[in-house]
Structure formats: structure tokens, C-alpha cells
Amino acid sequence: MNWISEWALPKIKTLFGAPREMPDNLWHKCPSCEKMIFQNDLEANLRVCTHCGHHMRLSSKQRLDATLDEGWQRADIEKVPLDPLRFKDQRRYADRLKEAQAKSGMEDAVMVGHGAIAGQRAVVAVFEFAFMAGSMGAGVGEALVTAARLAVLQDAPLVVFASSGGARMQEGAVSLMQMPRTVIATQMVKDAGLPFIVVLCDPTTGGVTASFAMLGDIQIAEPGALIGFAGARVIEQTVREKLPEGFQRAEYLLANGILDMVVKRAEMRPTLARLLALLRGEPRAEAA
């Protein structure tokens, strides 16, 4: 299916002329500074506001394109049983899931790509926040285990861009068990002596932060990203105190010693490339 949606369809669209963009879509209002940005400029700037530097969400595909060298490949992820609890709230979970799958062309909320970062082999797993808020169920667990196995197989480091509301409630304790499962994925990579780097993007919370996403050899976050275990509202209700300015933001975590660095999107790829080269201990040509 991938080649159809990623290659054939765009070709057909080019041949027959893509539907013309509505003027509404030409401009985008920054949710932070509320200034208008020309859509093409925003995309060219990796969805970082050209006025105030606010980092907006990237799709998993955009993220992989921005991180990996051209020619990267998407890894196949085995299907897991759908809807293990036959969960139904106001709607059936199975229906929500199928809808998210149809909309995204993804099996679940993580896309795994492999290729190279500035010439160095790497496996990169990226959360798609638009897919049920990037929540973690068996499908996400499977994607991360697949990414880890692929990294070990290819003797490549694993980089995960996390962005998730936390556990996927509709999978109940099955989603809870993805916490140990994804921790095992990080252990596989570390056991093989390979670097595991986590980039926390806006937002990363709950069971995702309390498992693999806090276990990176290096912990990076994007500016302004919301990162935490408990939700702000729950904390406010429990402690009945006003939350401090910038609470649970990337810069707050950096100041509290929970992150190694906060890195702007434009600097992400060169930073990752430099880190991977340093961690893998390859001397540069001049030192040889």
C-alpha cells in the first residue's frame, strides 16, 4: 500500500493536476504569537513560526524527511490484534482505530524509518500525534520493539521522537503493559552497545514518559514542549496550588536536570549527527 500512497498517488495527482489550494490554506495563524505566516514559508521552516520561533507539530512523515537523509525507508510493522478489550465508550474503539488508520495511512501511532543521518546509519521511530493523540497501545509497543530489533540488526543507533498523550485507555491493562514492553526495547538497543536517543516533542506525557521516553542515553527536547507524568489539571486538583510559570515545559525540565538539552528544530539534525558520531567513537579523518 505504501508505494501507492507515497509514490503512485502523487504522480497521478501531478499528471492530472492537484486540486487547487483554497485561499484559506495559504495563510496560517501562529497559535503562540497569533501572527499570520504564509503556509509555504511555514512548511519550509519545518513548521516553526517565522515570527516568534514557536514549534508547531510535525507529522511523522515530515519528521522523518527532516531527520533522515534522502532515500530512507519505512519499516513494516507487524499487525497486532485490534481492540483486545472490545472497548466501547461513546463510540466503539475499533471504529475510532479504523478511522485513525484510514486518515493516516498508518497501522498505529508510530512510524519507523531507517536510513542515515548525515551519512550515519540510524533507525528513527516517530510518534504521530494526530493518530489518537499518539497514545500508546499494543500497536505502538510493537512499532518500538520493531524499531529496536531493526536497530540491533542493522547495528544502528535508535532515535525516538516522542509525542503522546500517554497510555491508550481503550486498551486498558494491555496498554499499561506496553510500558515494560517498550523499556525492554530500550534494553535490547543498549545491550547491543548502541546509542538510544530520545527527542521529546510537544506534548509527551503519562505512561510514555514513565517508560522508554525517559530512558535515553541522551535526552533532548524541542523548545516549549510540554513534558510530564501527571496532567496539569490533576496536579492542580490534588495539591490545590497554582502551577509555577513554565511548569512541565522543556526549559523547566532542563533546569531541573531531567534533560540534556533543548534543541531547536533547525538544529536537530546536525545535533543528532554530531551526537551519534561522538557516541560511536569514530575518529574524524584528520585524527586518523
Binding site: 514518559t209 521516553a213 507524568f229 496536579i235 536536570g257
Partner: peptide, 10 residues
């Protein structure tokens, strides 16, 4: 949260 609840659990 400030002391890293998520990391401690992980």
C-alpha cells in the same frame, strides 16, 4: 514532577 516522577518510574 520537578524531581522527575516519570523518569523514576521508568
Amino acid at each position: 514532577e520537578a524531581r522527575g516522577q516519570a523518569e523514576a518510574i521508568a
